[in-house]
């Protein structure tokens, strides 16, 4: 299944997907729809730009990827970059500024695109410890910001309604919890499988 999937995802197709997604996200009507509510802005537009970036990472030729990897041992620099981008973009002012300042909007989208590419290029190389450290920082931060968004009596963004903000807050907490559970489940599955293969191998080993 995964081999077939990998064979279907040729660099050309990934490039086309990145381009199509990028054009769609930059298209004014789609942008206006995505940014009309706070939750779509943060929970739909942000991940979609990152997805476009992740597709883009598949286009890089192996030589360039190898050169980039020398600056990204164990995926550390890439994940630091992703963490930095996500932290800065959680400042509520970004959402208001992105709506009225084209420069901030372009920077935001470019940063998310690069973060998506960096995440894909770094995740596999990172290993469980670095992955855990990264998620251990980013997910609690997301949950705390979500809690803040849903609990504060203040409207944090001038352009968005208070109930929209509260809904986004609740969903940020939910997404952070789901991602944490998914990663833990994956780690557990990996450990169980390793143990199972270890036992199967045991009789053969001296």
């Amino acid at each position: 299944m995964s081999a077939r999937w990998a064979a279907a995802c040729t660099p050309a197709r990934q490039g086309a997907a990145a381009l199509a997604l990028g054009v769609l996200l930059a298209w004014p009507a789609a942008r206006a729809w995505l940014e009309a509510t706070m939750w779509r802005h943060m929970l739909l537009q942000f991940p979609l730009w990152m997805l476009a970036g992740a597709c883009l990472a598949g286009v890089l030729p192996p030589a360039l990827r190898a050169r980039a990897a020398r600056w990204n041992a164990h995926g550390i620099a890439g994940l630091v970059g992703v963490g930095v981008v996500l932290s800065v973009l959680m400042v509520p002012r970004v959402l208001d500024l992105a709506l009225r300042d084209p420069g901030v909007e372009a920077t935001k989208c470019a940063a998310l695109l690069l973060a998506g590419a960096a995440l894909r290029a770094s995740w596999g190389a990172a290993g469980l410890v670095v992955q855990g450290f990264f998620l251990g920082n980013v997910l609690p931060m997301t949950a705390v910001v979500g809690q803040l968004y849903s609990d504060t009596p203040l409207r944090l963004c001038n352009a968005y309604l208070q109930d929209d903000q509260a809904r986004l807050g609740a969903w940020l907490v939910g997404v952070a919890a789901l991602l944490a559970l998914a990663w833990l489940a994956r780690v557990a599955w990996w450990l169980v499988r390793r143990e199972a293969t270890g036992q199967a191998l045991a009789p053969d080993s001296p």
């Binding site: 930095v84 800065v88 400042v91 509520p92």
Partner: peptide, 23 residues
């Protein structure tokens, strides 16, 4: 990257004084 993020956050929050556009 960390320094870049720090500079961006500092610009965005007017030296960490405000977090919202209203502020």
């Amino acid at each position: 990257l960390l320094l870049g993020g720090y500079a961006a956050a500092r610009w965005l929050t007017h030296d960490f004084q405000v977090w919202t556009d209203e502020g």
